[in-house]
Design a protein around this nucleic acid. Structure first.
Lengths: 164, 164
DNA sequence: CCCAACTACATGGCGTGTCATCTACCTCCA
DNA sequence: TGGAGGTAGATGACACGCCATGTAGTTGGG
């Protein structure tokens, strides 16, 4: 969490913090993501969509009929069910999506993109993609991009193996 | 924001989304950070501190007298002033920090770590550092860590140059 | 057929973050 | 010296995310 040296805390069996090189890498990685993400969020918000909205709308756009069951949608975008439920409730209020009851299963429901939702994502997506290019992709060569992907995936594997 | 292909949206002057390789790198980078951050947050919360608490307490611990002006603290950790104000208000309620009035400037105030705050950070920090090691540092070789830092800093520069 | 266990989604509470706005105080110059 | 304008921080409204819990509807074994 922190990007600052903890001087006053020590352990017995391991270095209390990180070596300068380790700390440098850790800080750079964290700062990069936070600034990048914040910039993209602000940019989207200026077009009246949050990152969360965007993700939902893209996922719905990617289905043939523009709708998906809550569970499936939650799995697609790797969200907790309650997070999705809250988010969809907010988006329904704003008319971006609608809730379709499910006839086969009385408990279930579909989330369906509305025409307004489609209009919103179509208005925001090109600019957003251009931003991702400008801020991230264009800063690195194809080789470097590959390297970054490889390293990221390596750490992701570590995460899957460790997480008690 | 999204990690899903936008099939139905096109631009005239640029690819509508990212090439497979670009998308792969972008997705991996985003997913890594989100999972890593979420894991660390959950781990800290189990010890009754949020990432935000942790960052504040570390920054205060790093000063000689355990206190700092709001502005200075905000600059140190790169937060907006109002975010800091809200956060400190919450931490005061929990007794982790205190507000010291500033005699030289009647508007200003210091945030000061309390004994309880010190106890909390000292209890949490070693475990947290160990987690950062386990989840992130140990997944990569020193060379790879350097590479990651270099690439991160490159993108950060791009961010500083572009942001309008 | 019936009810217990399970599933799908909703909801409330709380901590968090942003933006816009407010208040108190300070500075500096006419 | 007396405002005008700037600065330090607080606050209210709202969106977001997590956890725990609630409520329908469904299913399967007896």
């Amino acid at each position: 969490m922190s990007s600052v040296q903890v001087n006053s805390v020590r352990m017995n069996d391991a270095p209390a913090w990180l070596s300068p090189a380790e700390q440098h890498a850790w800080r750079a990685f964290i700062r990069l993501h936070q600034k990048l993400w914040a910039t993209l969020e602000r940019d989207l918000k200026a077009r009246k969509l949050s990152g969360a909205d965007f993700q939902i709308l893209v996922a719905l756009t990617d289905t043939s009929d523009g709708r998906q069951r809550f569970q499936d949608l939650a799995n697609t975008i790797e969200w907790e069910q309650s997070r999705l439920s809250h988010q969809i409730a907010r988006m329904i209020k704003r008319g971006l999506v609608a809730r379709d009851e499910c006839t086969e299963d009385g408990r279930g429901a579909f989330v369906a993109i509305t025409p307004a939702g489609r209009k919103a994502i179509e208005a925001a997506a090109p600019h957003h993609v251009a931003m991702v290019r400008r801020l991230f992709i264009d800063a690195l060569s194809p080789d470097e991009l590959d390297t970054l992907a490889r390293l990221s995936n390596r750490v992701l594997e570590q995460l899957d193996n460790v997480p008690p």
